[in-house]
Computed example of a mutant assay.
Amino acid sequence: MLLNNLSLPDYPQMIMEAIEALNEKDGSSMTSITKHIELTHSDLPENHSTLLSHHLNLMKQSGELVMSNNNYMKPDLNAPPKRGRGRPPKPKSPLPTGSVVSPPRPRGRPPKPKDLSAPPKPKTPVSTGRPRGRPPKKAKTAATVTAPPPPPGVKRGRGRPPKVQPSVVSQ
Rank of each mutant, 00 (worst) to 15 (best):
S28N: 05
P81T: 02
L39D: 15
S93L: 12
L56V: 03
L58M: 13
N57I: 07
P88R: 12
D26R: 11
S28A: 15
G27H: 08
H41N: 15
N71R: 14
N78Y: 02
N69H: 14
N78W: 05
H55G: 00
S62L: 00
N71D: 04
G27N: 07
P94R: 06
K92E: 14
P91A: 03
G98Y: 06
K90P: 03
E64P: 00
P75W: 03
K82P: 00
R107L: 13
R109H: 10
G86R: 11
S93R: 15
R83D: 10
S32D: 14
E38Y: 01
P80D: 03
S53H: 09
S62W: 01
N78R: 03
S32H: 07
P96C: 03
N70P: 00
P106E: 10
R83C: 05
T50F: 13
S32F: 04
I33P: 05
R87H: 13
R105P: 13
P106W: 05
T40W: 00
P45V: 06
D76Y: 00
D43F: 12
M67E: 15
M59L: 06
N47H: 14
N78A: 02
E38T: 11
R109F: 09
T97Q: 12
K90H: 05
K92R: 15
S68W: 01
D26I: 03
H54Q: 14
S53P: 00
T97V: 10
P96I: 08
P96F: 06
G108W: 09
V101W: 06
N57T: 14
G27E: 08
E64G: 01
P104R: 12
P94H: 06
P96L: 10
G98Q: 06
P104Y: 10
N57Q: 13
R83P: 09
N71E: 04
E38N: 07
R107E: 14
R107W: 03
L52V: 05
P94Q: 04
K82L: 04
M30N: 06
K60A: 07
H36E: 09
P104D: 15
S62Q: 10
L51H: 07
H36N: 11
E46K: 12
R105E: 13
G98I: 11
P89G: 06
R87S: 14
S99Q: 12
T97D: 12
R105K: 14
E38H: 01
S32I: 06
N47K: 15
I33C: 02
V66R: 02
P106C: 02
H36Q: 12
N78S: 04
R83G: 01
H48K: 13
P110M: 09
L77C: 01
P110Y: 09
T31N: 11
H54D: 13
K74F: 01
R107A: 13
P104K: 11
M73R: 08
M67V: 15
Y72P: 03
R109T: 15
G98P: 08
P91R: 14
I37Q: 01
P80G: 01
P94S: 06
K82C: 01
G27C: 05
D26Y: 10
V100I: 15
L51A: 07
